[in-house]
Design a protein around this nucleic acid. Structure first.
Lengths: 204, 204
DNA sequence: CTGAAAACTTGACATTGTAAACTTTACATA
DNA sequence: TATGTAAAGTTTACAATGTCAAGTTTTCAG
């Protein structure tokens, strides 16, 4: 059976977790193209066919790594949100700064998270829990949701803006990446537009 | 020599163009993961090693396809911009609609365009020509650039917003992709936020 | 103690990217 | 026209990868 999460370990200890950890390390050190079944297995100290007992092929491993990465992403945003001024606007700006910072610090993992086809992990998140990853965005946006309107409106505006900037930034569109995100001159205008969200919706 | 663009064809006719065309067809029919040197070669009717005389390996072929795709992308946006109301706001809204529509109709090609590492093609574009791809965005944003401010400010706001929404939309974040982009309920709020761009920059 | 199932290994195979050696074609030039 | 050279394309070979099948080891319930 694939993916036995809570069964007692037999040989290795906890190979499933070890493979995910190895994968994240490979991503960090060598980039997305170096993430390979055989390399993960070698790094975890097992044979090349061992992962098949824990994941459904390479796509299964990538999915599991993406899930773990998404959780770290969520924690990074939570931590960032707690740093700045604790007003609704301050929290959303800090959250977005954390969004960009995480992507800059973990570009390959970020790319993996958002390149796993139809992200089924999001569909669950968006409809369900607040403790989930999307829930962090949702609760941070909540103060800007007008009475009786769909909360996804504000959420989509915020997420599109910060995600688009982050993606283009990583792609090097605004110059060679690796710049300190904090001081990139084009990040401020994005934040400024972010402050417009939640005000009266387009008078003309 | 690699990439002889304007030399007279010897055997095939114009293998370089044929390989790019084959690549785009493969992308359209079978997705990004099916884009393979050997498959492009087979589709063009040549041996698997023939592309090496025209591109620098698979990354070179991907780059060339991305460049061609980016040109089609630019033409699609130009066409879209010409359809709606010919006001500064109408043009920018039409442009963004064209942006999303192109990505929905050519998801694999769109993904390829924005996944070629540091997009050197953009760096040239952003600093140089108006006839280039980025130039279309630039000239459409121009009416919203306040006197004496960096035009890249408005451009970054617009591009981040539409690119982020498009990317998240393709990833299925807003529900299963393949929906008519025209009627997706979450696209309107993005357009609404777009209308806020270029007004007085954040009173508080 | 025993047997079955899970965990892991070994070996094999098709696909892919890449490099080298070779053949064919085009074309400038003597 | 004949010829030599370089580009264009083919063939062969090899390493890396994902996947599968069969076998081996370990765990553990009974």
């Amino acid at each position: 059976m694939t993916e036995p999460t809570d069964k007692k370990p037999h040989h290795h200890g906890d190979l499933r977790a070890a493979l995910i950890q190895s994968g994240i390390e490979i991503l960090t050190e060598s980039g997305l193209e170096s993430l390979t079944l055989r390399r993960c297995a070698a790094r975890a100290g097992v044979s090349h066919a061992a992962p098949a007992h824990h994941f459904d092929g390479i796509s299964g491993l990538r999915g599991a790594i993406a899930q773990e990465g998404f959780d770290r992403f969520r924690q990074a945003m939570l931590a960032a949100r707690a740093t700045g001024t604790q007003t609704p606007q301050g929290r959303i700006l800090s959250l977005c700064r954390g969004y960009l910072d995480f992507a800059v610090e973990n570009p390959a993992l970020f790319a993996l998270i958002f390149s796993c086809g139809p992200m089924s992990q999001f569909e669950d998140d968006m409809n369900a829990g607040d403790a989930s990853a999307y829930g962090v965005l949702r609760e941070t946006c909540a103060p800007f949701v007008s009475e009786g309107t769909d909360p996804r409106i504000v959420e989509t505006q915020v997420w599109s803006l910060i995600h688009g900037f982050t993606h283009l930034f990583l792609a090097g569109t605004f110059g060679p990446p690796g710049n300190s995100s904090d001081h990139h001159p084009l990040f401020a205008p994005v934040m400024a537009l972010l402050r417009e969200i939640g005000k009266d919706p387009a008078p003309n």
